[in-house]
Design a protein around this nucleic acid. Structure first.
Length: 235
DNA sequence: AGCACA
């Protein structure tokens, strides 16, 4: 099997990520890029020596993960092709949702393993040694787990640097759209067609930049009754 | 290359 015989999982494991990208930006960009395949429950990325260059994107549906694995395979992301597989284990946020979550002991490192051993010994002989002097200060990360966003359903959406905007109020002008879209890096131009009111094309320099703008402005209302619907233009 | 949940 191409995915390295790992069974399907609603979480995808991504490697070969550009390690120069800062963690929060990386998470945001991954969220932006992958939310086209479905609702994302969490994005996990750490920059420890063991885990830099990798990330996990947790979808609410396995089918969304499958589509993402296929369609975003080798997608150039910060100048490096994504390598995507299914994750090997269930994500905590999923376990928490289905009730199977059990907080793990931190047996990641040798010292911690040793600590655990000590602890176990302690347990068995009921000695009251309060030896664990670790003042465990979690390094204050805001842990940007996205709150409930509306996920766009999963269709064969092939990324494109050109976005297709629909459901615009007829009075929308390209100048109005420019004001919105030019905030996003890589913006090139807005094109509208006189004969077809309510739609527009917005071009970016590349797929990634268009994806980020799409995610950010998805559903944006120019007027209250018209949330804009953004998809990739057809190639 | 590397599968975690600060």
């Amino acid at each position: 099997m191409l995915s390295g015989d790992i069974p399907p999982n609603q979480t995808i494991y991504i490697k070969n990520l550009n390690e120069k990208v800062k963690k929060e930006e990386l998470k945001r960009s991954l969220y932006a890029l992958f939310s086209q395949y479905g609702r994302i429950l969490d994005v996990v990325a750490l920059k420890t020596t063991k885990l830099r260059g990798q990330a996990w994107v947790v979808f609410s549906e396995v089918t969304a993960a499958s589509t993402a694995v296929r369609q975003m395979q080798s997608f150039p992301f910060y100048d490096k092709p994504l390598r995507i597989q299914y994750a090997k284990t269930k994500s905590d946020c999923v376990a928490k949702a289905d009730g199977s979550f059990v907080p793990r002991e931190k047996k990641k490192r040798k010292e911690e393993k040793a600590a655990e051993k000590r602890r176990k010994a302690e347990e068995t002989q009921q000695s009251g040694v309060a030896s664990n002097g670790q003042s465990f200060q979690s390094n204050g990360g805001p842990s940007v787990s996205q709150t409930s966003n509306q996920g766009k359903p999963q269709e064969a959406a092939t990324p494109n640097n050109i976005l297709f905007i629909q459901n615009l109020p007829f009075e929308t002008t390209s100048a109005m759209l420019q004001i919105l879209f030019r905030e996003y890096p890589g913006f090139k131009e807005v094109r509208m067609i006189e004969a077809k009111p309510g739609i527009a094309f917005v071009e970016f320099e590349d797929d990634m930049q268009s994806s980020i703008a799409m995610q950010s402005l998805q559903g944006f209302k120019i007027t209250p009754q018209y949330p804009m619907a953004i998809t990739y233009a057809k190639k």
